[in-house]
Design a protein around this nucleic acid. Sequence first.
RNA 1: GUGAGUGUAGCUCAAUCGGUUAGAGCGCUGGACUGUGGCUCCAGAGGUUGUGGGUUCGAUCCCCAUCACUCACCCCA
Length: 430
Amino acid sequence: MKIPSVKGFHDVLPGESARWSRLEATAREVFLRYNFAEVRLPIVERAELFRRSVGETTDIVEKEMYAFEDRDGTEVTLRPEGTASAVRSYVEHTMQAAEPVTKLFYFGPMFRRERPQRGRLRQFSQIGVEVFGRDDPGIDAEVLLLMSDLLRAFEIESGEIGVNTLGCSECRPGFRSALVAWGESKRDAICGDCQRRLEQNPLRLLDCKQPGCEALRETAPKMLDHTCLACGEHFARVRQLCEFQGVELALRPYMVRGLDYYCRTAFEVTAQGLGSQNAIGGGGRYDGLVRSLGGPAVGGIGFALGVERLALVLEAQGVEPPSTTPEFFVAPLGSAAEEHAFALAHRLRSAGTGVEVDAGGKSLKSQMRRAGKTGAPYVIILGEDEVAQQTITVRDMEARADRRNVVGLDTNLEDLRAALQAARSTEEQA
RNA sequence: GUGAGUGUAGCUCAAUCGGUUAGAGCGCUGGACUGUGGCUCCAGAGGUUGUGGGUUCGAUCCCCAUCACUCACCCCA
């Protein structure tokens, strides 16, 4: 009886996992250049952490969390996002005491119980960064620059960074009332969803995709026109600094974010090839969050990229996942040869190279076929003749030539490579 | 969560009006070549037609349920 995987929970199979490894390795490299340090965060947190940070009335908290009661009665949940965990960790370990600025990055799975679609799974992986302890526009620009560098390093071609300012506790309430007033005045014209949003989450009025609402939006107030002086200057400076560095930011006056903690600079990256789930990353500033979770009054900013979506974009771009091929393929003929093949392979592997050993028993032809498929540049043939003469025959696949008796059966990696190299160069001279 | 669509071999797809033995290409295994890969040719393996019911003499085809995926909404990475 087959037992299927759970809906929305997928395997990342060998071909694809190579792409993931590459993404993570690349990200790690870029993060280190920006002096970010990795933090490994738990997957289960107290449910309260997200209620207080992401927001009670957000979809994520209201209907998407995998929350349950632990055996001791603790209300826990599979984390739906990374920022709250990172903040919790920052506060729990009083990181501000060790250094004024903390720059963290993390990889890992997140869980949201949504209806699955392409690019939207119930378990999905994020690559995220957070900076604590700076609230100047310079760090916002650095984070945006980092994100832009990352996308380039990933070879994402269609990534577009949209930005907006969400204001702060000073100016957002005023904007919010202006928006609600506008919404009330259009109540009959906006869609049903928007009428609901008007009550629950008015900012969401701005990014409705209904054609009717989209048309009306022109007449809606923009946060940009309602910022306090400090927020206005902050945002202008962020954009200016990015421009200096050649980071293109598309101003999206109607972009809002789904998590309550964001303020001031907010951004998201969209890319081609994903259908309607076209956001590959998003983030922003969250100045009150650390304080509200019991930490010091420090500002924060961060973003997360969705690994599945990055992989889909790369696939759509026709970028093949990296493949690794062993340097040697060992083809033993007969059981006596198998022992020697095993020993030789182990010696070469210990010396640091990749070796695939085929099973004896099969015809040389079929072993060669398999060798060709692995892409190994050299096939070591170990038959009765070789064992008798204590030597090996190496088939140079590219040169399509056999190298006989150039090394002994007890050769090491260095001598073997040297001999193969020598064989090639004498061949070229001839 | 709402609305719609699609499920046939490992993959991509056929199969007449509901008709008896469900096919092809690719891939896989082997052979042509008794110790030599890619190309070519030949052969073979591989299917409870997603699953469970129903209608019918007969179901891959029609109906119901269910599961999964896909698309849009919603949401967001």
